[in-house]
Design a binder for these strands. Structure first.
Length: 498
RNA sequence: GCCCCCAUAGUCUAGUGGCCAAGGACGCCGGAUUCUCAGUCCGGAAGCCGGGGUUCGACUCCCCGUGGGGGUACCA
């Protein structure tokens, strides 16, 4: 009989959600959903200094953005709550009493300064810096004296003195740690707050966590955790330590690598579906050559056993490519929904667009998405759809707008377009090509200046289709306006730098 | 310093002793596309870290080295 799978994602609320956290959350979620188990969200706010109160919302938003849900957590409740560690202090103290009663924990009066000093000495002598255990031997009288002298204390866990600790990790394999190499860790701080090790072990047990899936930086901690479990009589969960995500310089992805917050990628115009797909491919592969996979496909192929144990570099370029694939794949309506807030923020769309205007936006998206990788591309390269106030790129000026014959040609084209009774891409194409033929030039000689005049750029989607999405009067106005500027010599190419 | 882990092209990866004169993807380079390219299509360059074993046979197993990473906190 197999127990129901229960996993947890347990972030520290430090104010922002790291892309590595999201990766861990994702793998937990995948395993939970794959196994028909439960996903628990637990907040590990035992660091009173770094934890912030609004961080909870950031965590929820990060998870929701990428489309992960959870069955138990601070917001949805559950029968093993509370799910915020600072609200569970009484619980930890109960187990602390058990440890003290069994002589597996003791008061330590050493100050942080003393500890640091001793570590320096040990390091200088080339021996592993670990707590020397001096307070473990204190007599009741000595403790009383120290207290009377006003010394504050914390609580340490008495680790095994010899032997080894074997971790059978689903991803990392069997790893053995020497017990003699670690000192007694602090499990309750002077403040009365538990440390991560203690709270984590107690909660995983109480919340009936069956599989601990976390980043490999926690692998060494597992030695302490397993000893704590043994001392407390807890059945240890299964462990799966995920490889780290590295920055370009191959060190653990962190703030100094630039964009690491989930919100950074959201703002850069990544689609959550693409990020989901991209992230799952860091440390896991379906075993065949599929890369762009739906959530269902991923779920049906996923397994912890297939996870790789070597770290991977977060390659933004590949992430952008993946995003581009989703731009092509997803329904234009959905992309438009994701895009709208960005356009509104850039003041390129009104706050509550009419149904007609919305339809138009969907068409713009549909036309542009093939050559678009990020949502923000619409705000930059695609701004001419939304405003007359676009820049004339230097390349456009140089190649197409600074020629002598241009103003007249643009005006001729404007005249023709003015006569069109129907404004659709076929009629526009006929008019444009017609002018080219009558002027005895190739169609390109009209198309390119026209694109440059109307969009300010040399590249973009099919000219006739993009013009169709502009208002007829507006398009004509742009042609005449550009002609005027060109005549006034205001569209001369800037000298090239370098 | 000490402990642990990792090692297929610049990057993500397939590979679990013969199917591999190593497959896919991103990126890069080249060509095509007379409506541009940031799109699309086609093509190309680029890799098993080194050395020892084990074996009839190693990218795959073992050892050593090297390189990289993580840990070594009253942070998680």
């Amino acid at each position: 009989m197999t127990e129901d799978v229960r996993v947890r994602f347990a972030p520290a609320p430090t104010g922002y959600m790291h892309i590595g956290n999201l990766h861990t959350a994702l793998f937990n979620w995948l395993f939970a959903r794959k196994m028909g188990g439960a996903m628990i969200l637990r907040i590990e706010d035992t660091d009173e200094l770094r934890s912030t109160s609004d961080a909870l919302e950031v965590i929820y938003q990060g998870l929701k953005w990428i489309g992960l849900d959870w069955d138990e957590g601070p917001d949805v409740g559950g029968e093993y709550g509370p799910y915020v560690q600072s609200e569970r202090l009484d619980i930890y103290h109960e187990y602390l009493d058990q440890l003290i009663g069994g002589e597996r924990a003791y008061e330590c009066f050493c100050t942080p300064e003393e500890l640091e000093e001793r570590r320096q000495v040990m390091r200088a002598r080339g021996i592993p810096p670990k707590y020397d255990g001096r307070c473990a031997a204190l007599s009741d009288d000595e403790r009383e004296e120290l207290r009377a002298a006003g010394r504050k204390s914390c609580i340490r866990f008495r680790v095994e003195e010899g032997g080894t600790t074997l971790i059978r990790d689903i991803i990392q394999g069997e790893v053995t740690y020497d017990n003699a190499l670690i000192g007694d860790p602090v499990i309750v701080k002077t403040s009365g707050f538990p440390t991560y090790h203690f709270a984590c072990v107690v909660d995983d047990h109480l919340m009936r966590i069956t599989h601990v899936i976390r980043a490999v930086e926690h692998l060494p901690n597992t030695q302490i955790h397993m000893q704590l479990q043994a001392a407390l009589g807890f059945e240890p969960p299964a462990y799966a330590h995920l490889p780290l995500i590295l920055g370009e310089d191959r060190t653990k992805l962190s703030k100094r690598h630039g964009a690491v917050a989930v919100t950074d990628y959201e703002q850069q115009g990544f689609l959550p579906e693409a990020m989901f797909n991209f992230l799952v491919l860091l440390g896991w592969s379906p075993g065949d050559e599929r890369e762009v996979m739906s959530r269902e496909e991923i779920l049906s192929s996923f397994s912890l056993e297939a996870c790789d144990s070597s770290p991977s570099v977060f390659d933004v370029q590949k992430a952008e490519w993946m995003n581009g694939e989703y731009m092509k794949l997803m329904a234009p309506e959905v992309i438009a929904e994701r895009l709208l807030p960005l356009l509104q923020e850039a003041r390129l769309m009104e706050d509550s667009p009419s149904a007609e205007r919305w339809e138009w936006l969907v068409q713009v998206v549909d036309l542009m998405r093939e050559r678009t990788r990020l949502l923000t591309t619409f705000v930059s390269w695609g701004q001419y759809f939304f405003t007359d106030d676009y820049e004339y790129e230097n390349r456009a000026r140089k190649k197409w707008l600074s020629r002598e014959e241009i103003p007249e040609r643009l005006e001729l084209l404007a005249d023709r377009l003015q006569l069109l009774a129907t404004w659709d891409h076929q009629s526009i194409e006929t008019a444009v090509r017609g002018l080219a033929e009558e002027s005895g030039v190739s169609a390109a000689k009209v198309i390119h200046p026209c694109r440059a005049a109307i969009t300010g750029t040399t590249i973009g989607p099919s000219l006739f289709h993009l013009m169709e999405l502009l208002d007829q009067e507006d398009a004509i106005g742009r042609l005449r306006g550009t002609a005027e500027l060109a005549r006034a010599g205001k569209l001369a190419a800037e000298p090239e730098d370098e």
